[in-house]
Design a protein around this nucleic acid. Structure first.
Lengths: 222, 222
DNA sequence: TTAAATACCGACCGTTCGGTCTGTAAATAA
DNA sequence: TTATTTACAGACCGAACGGTCGGTATTTAA
């Protein structure tokens, strides 16, 4: 009795891998790096041990490839978002809400934390992922160029911190809040803090914000 | 043949526990929560399995007590530091350098990360440590009162973010940088960013800073 | 000096871990 | 149709895990 599935080898292979990626990421979110055992991941994915070993050399490689997978998704999401948002006066707020919701809550936050912390003590994993992280940062930087034209990020006022630095600091603030929110979970509080953060940095990057608005207004004229 | 050590029971007990705490914390730093196995900790501490089980019900309890231990040390260090620093114009810089060096580098950073991330997925550990963290924060808050008189943290200018919020945001920025520094290790870069951060927030808390300096000057007059 | 309490020792246990290996099923190329 | 390659299945393995337990050593109280 031969069971034909009607799928090509490539389709079967791809499907299995994606199931494993998703199961790995869900396991990392739910159980942490420490609790995400291979048996558990395979059970969740509905994939046999044999199928897994056919596609991946070992567990670490599965973890690494799953990380690549979620980062690629993140870049794609960001590109789509950055390419379809109107330029308004509260765009800074929208930017940081987007970053928070997509990167510093839910599964992405979980995976980000678990993988980063794992990399701290696992040299092999860190070396494997360093170029992946670098590529990720490059892609994100490029995507944000729809927001702040990187080429014109000069000093806002003489002696003041430039815009890119302010943004980097602000993103680090979000990162810190993301860690803190593990033990002190209170979404409303972090929303408030995000507002305060934006209120704090807005004056420092007003130049850029207004520049974009001026551009938008010009486009409306045409 | 009886070997008298000349130590009291309490001394012996205390010594063993401290050895275990230190070994646990060192293991967490070096191997991470994931790699810090009990056998490894015991070997490092030079303590037998039997001695361990006599003092602790299980591994998680050892982890939790070790966390309490390092947090108590941190509070003590902070109290000493806060009680013995001259009030100068660059005291903000000194404050954040102190916080960074003591909490967001080295062993403390490692343990902070490992334990927090472990708490994310381990409800039991989180419940066990939540009051510990709360007590820690209370103690730290109290210690910082030597720096910023909490009772006078009003609005610096109408509509602006108040001082305490600015400080909390800044500490979150340090936290974010601490995570980032796992994968992107560059002490000089983070020193620079810390400078920029301070330059950014200094104007927002100038009132307080000067107030303290005025107090110091007054004391000199007397 | 003796009895009780406390501190400590390490062999042992059941479980789970990541990884391997032999064999089968399905798709593809000849 | 057949041969080859690719995809998958699951039993099995040694190693390491956290935890237990019966016995010994040291201190302390009677």
């Amino acid at each position: 009795m031969i069971k034909k599935t009607g799928r090509t080898q490539e389709e079967r292979s791809r499907k299995t891998k994606i199931c494993l990626f998703e199961a790995t990421l869900d396991s990392l979110e739910e159980l942490g790096y420490h609790g995400a055992s291979l048996s558990q991941i395979l059970k969740r994915a509905g994939v046999s041990r044999g199928a897994w070993s056919h596609h991946f050399t070992n567990k670490k490689e599965l973890i690494a490839r799953s990380t690549e997978y979620i980062l690629d998704q993140a870049v794609e999401t960001t590109r789509r978002w950055a390419g379809s948002v109107e330029i308004t006066k509260d765009k800074l707020q929208k930017l940081f809400d987007f970053i928070w919701d997509n990167f510093y809550t839910g599964r992405h936050r979980a995976v980000w934390l678990e993988i980063n912390v794992a990399c701290r003590t696992d040299t092999e994993l860190r070396k494997r992922l360093t170029p992946v992280f670098e590529h990720f940062h490059e892609s994100m930087k490029e995507a944000w160029n729809n927001w702040f034209d990187a080429t014109e990020n000069g000093k806002t006022e003489s002696g003041k911190t430039d815009v890119e630095t302010v943004i980097i600091l602000a993103i680090n603030t979000l990162r810190g809040m993301a860690v803190q929110s593990i033990v002190q979970d209170d979404p409303e509080y972090y929303r408030q803090m995000r507002c305060e953060l934006i209120r704090m940095i807005s004056p420092l990057i007003r130049v850029q914000a207004y520049k974009h608005i001026r551009v938008a207004e010009k486009n409306e004229e045409a």
